[in-house]
Design a protein around this nucleic acid. Sequence first.
DNA 1: CATGAATGAGCGTTCATTCAT
DNA 2: TATGAATGAACGCTCATTCAT
Lengths: 181, 181, 181, 181
Amino acid sequence: MDAALLLFAERGYDGTTVPMIADTAEVGAGTIYRYFESKEVLVNVLFQECVTRFIGSVSRNYPHAANIRAQFTHIFGGMVRFAKDDIHALHFIETHSGARYLDPKSRETFQQLMDFLHAFVHSGKEQGLIRPLPSDALIAIVFGAFTKMFTLIRAGKITETPELLSQIEESCWDAVRVHSD
Amino acid sequence: MDAALLLFAERGYDGTTVPMIADTAEVGAGTIYRYFESKEVLVNVLFQECVTRFIGSVSRNYPHAANIRAQFTHIFGGMVRFAKDDIHALHFIETHSGARYLDPKSRETFQQLMDFLHAFVHSGKEQGLIRPLPSDALIAIVFGAFTKMFTLIRAGKITETPELLSQIEESCWDAVRVHSD
Amino acid sequence: MDAALLLFAERGYDGTTVPMIADTAEVGAGTIYRYFESKEVLVNVLFQECVTRFIGSVSRNYPHAANIRAQFTHIFGGMVRFAKDDIHALHFIETHSGARYLDPKSRETFQQLMDFLHAFVHSGKEQGLIRPLPSDALIAIVFGAFTKMFTLIRAGKITETPELLSQIEESCWDAVRVHSD
Amino acid sequence: MDAALLLFAERGYDGTTVPMIADTAEVGAGTIYRYFESKEVLVNVLFQECVTRFIGSVSRNYPHAANIRAQFTHIFGGMVRFAKDDIHALHFIETHSGARYLDPKSRETFQQLMDFLHAFVHSGKEQGLIRPLPSDALIAIVFGAFTKMFTLIRAGKITETPELLSQIEESCWDAVRVHSD
DNA sequence: CATGAATGAGCGTTCATTCAT
DNA sequence: TATGAATGAACGCTCATTCAT
């Protein structure tokens, strides 16, 4: 699964061949089929597993009672932890969500993630602290900014430091929050 | 080329077959090879053409003398115009920049776009109006947010209106600008 | 189709590979797929075509008004003509009728052949000239005897002569007719 | 071996996989290889065993001194007993005799069966009681008729009764005997 | 002794590319 | 110039066989 994740993230589903995965994993091509019915099943299992981990990462110990800003920090921190823990998983999710070969369960799992984020955004909007834009758009802005930025880190173009991450968080928050000035 | 752009954007390079392109374009498969040496050449020509158009869109009539905010509006407006003009081209650029099959010329063309944006960001940072973050990161934030958001529009999940676009612009600007409060 | 017929007859469906068919037919493996969706479609088309030809061979110019013996001669003659015309087709039908990969249309086509033979046997039984055995059994006896015998001819173990064929016909007829002694 | 016989008879050698046999036999796939060097050895051992049993069935207590008709009854009875005893064995022999993967010993074993039948036919022809046709042809007629008929019984299309079997015997005998009328 | 995970050759099939028409 | 039939390398996948447990 590590090999598949790496390759799917780097080359995409169609650009990754089963022999490639087998070679990277240092197993025979047939072995993969003892564990996954097909390449399509593999990508779905992988996707669900990644998204589930991602959900866990952003929702575990979620400070329900805290203020929006602290909740945003929690979510952002979860995203960072997830992205750092497995640098390919985030990109894999990003590039494969919405793909034509995802099965209903994968779509549903992804929807759970979206639902979680929607709930956060909705609550922020209700409190008048997050801009009154469509939730999808707000999520897209933060998620888009964050993933593209981590792609740069993965590619080694910029170096990830606590300061940088904290500033990026500030930047993303400024993108969605209501400004009083 | 329209057919190829559409398919590459929707299914990716590896998920698009030459016969698919030929069918969509309502020409024979062989005809494509009269105009493009190979599928790889086609995707490169297409990429360069799209990126060049994109550069044109954001840089044409660029207000060199205006202030940063106005310049940002110009760039953002160019991006919107480009995305609206050919709804698939932006997504095609987004998903194919950095692909392994891009040739040096494609990479260089894309770099020209990056250079243009870098110059803008650099100037903004020098004036103390844009955050002192790595330029790549700042571009990624705006670009990432913008493209993800337009993906939603393309998918029909949110409806594009002048108000929405203006608010998104504000949001993106707030993500990169220095806040005085 | 000739190559496929030959190989299916000699090695069976599962024992015949598509590359084998392509090599025998002196075409590329991919070419086969321009004409047949799959190996399974190929075997079905082939089966239907053979059975249809077989039906034509035994039913064309059928002497509806003649006596049973003459009708038997006509059918037997049709079988001989068919078997001689394409020595593999009969064996192909014989070994593939009832196979798990035959589609409904193939089964129906084969049933048409059976129906034709049933009608003949039924009429003979009604006239008291053919034994009062299940029609299926009577057909099996003649068909079984005939095909096994032609397998020998195909294998070169016995030589086909008009006299031999006439004697085999007599033998088959004696197997199904009512004997007055 | 029962599992293998069943599957080879129903799906043919090439259509039967070793895991299929293992599953049907409720053993591990590897276990089969403790008893048979290869799938090919298995089919040969099975073939030889079946043919040997068949020979036993038709030749045990053979009435050497009796007349041809009684000998025919004996052989036919042996065939019936064999076919009833193991409903798949006869079909397995029928469909696998002459197969490309049979080894010399299998071919020789089958030849012993043929020799036994040849001897019977030869003796009958010498006595002027069996038609002066090639022995192979005569055997093919009886064997072909018999096996095709038993295939129907196996498939449940006709029901086997002593009367039916006796009539089939008569029919087969009429196919090979010399008729005085 | 029995197992079943692992293997990789070879299956059925696809598709980028060529070329006669 | 435009075509699409033909190609064969390489795909996703299966399965006869091996071998550590």
